[in-house]
Amino acid sequence: VRNPMPVLLFILIYLMTMLQIENERELDRILDNLFSEDDAKVEVPLMIPARSRLNMKVFSVPSSMKIGRKCRLHGNIRAGSIDVLEGTVIFGSLRSRGTVSVAGGVTVHGNVESSGKVYVKKGAHILGDVIAKEIFLHEDAKIDGIIEAPHGMHIGWGE
């Protein structure tokens, strides 16, 4: 099918006819009931604050940025503070004016730079340099580049 829209429209009209749905509100209610998970916590998949800039090269956010579990991002990330959760792969660098936290199972194909503190947890792998005032590095984390921490580096920290 070169253009799937006519097929999708046909399926939608067919379902509406079979379910005897006459208006759009009723369809929305049925779909919400069908796909809602009452017991599960509803998370916002993406929230972009004001004055942010997102393009193919840079993700720039004026405040804090939290990157979810098992994400795959291409581009350099700039934010007030950055929290990268488990299993994420970043093809680019992280730069922050505040704290940067890199969880276990995260791979950063670039540098991590901060004017504050950087936390690199167990199982994290950074393929570039880590530059910050103070670095907290777990002994099972990997850093392939240069480590620069004028206010000290703590090894064996954290989980």
Rank of each mutant, 00 (worst) to 15 (best):
V89E: 15
R53H: 14
G68M: 09
V106R: 05
R53P: 00
P49G: 07
V42A: 11
E86I: 01
R72C: 04
G80R: 13
S114Q: 07
V106G: 01
G98K: 13
V120Y: 05
A103Y: 10
V108E: 00
F59V: 15
L127D: 10
S52K: 14
F35K: 05
L31M: 13
K70T: 08
V108M: 12
E86V: 07
L46D: 01
L31S: 01
P62C: 12
F91M: 04
E37M: 07
K41P: 01
L54E: 01
R53K: 10
K66I: 12
S64T: 15
K57L: 07
S60G: 02
M65Y: 08
G104T: 02
L54S: 02
E86K: 10
G110H: 07
S81L: 01
T99N: 05
I67H: 15
V108C: 01
L31A: 09
I67E: 06
G87Q: 08
S36A: 15
A40N: 13
G92L: 01
V44L: 13
S115C: 03
K66G: 02
L46G: 01
K117E: 04
L127R: 15
R72T: 14
E37F: 09
T107F: 05
D38G: 04
S60N: 09
I90R: 12
V108F: 05
K121I: 04
S115M: 05
T88W: 01
F59D: 03
M56Y: 04
K57I: 06
N76Y: 00
R51N: 05
N111Q: 00
M65A: 15
M65K: 02
E43V: 02
I30R: 11
V100F: 09
V84K: 04
R95G: 06
L34K: 06
G92P: 03
R51W: 03
D32W: 08
N33S: 11
F91R: 07
G123T: 09
R97C: 01
M47I: 07
V102N: 05
G110A: 06
F35C: 03
G75H: 08
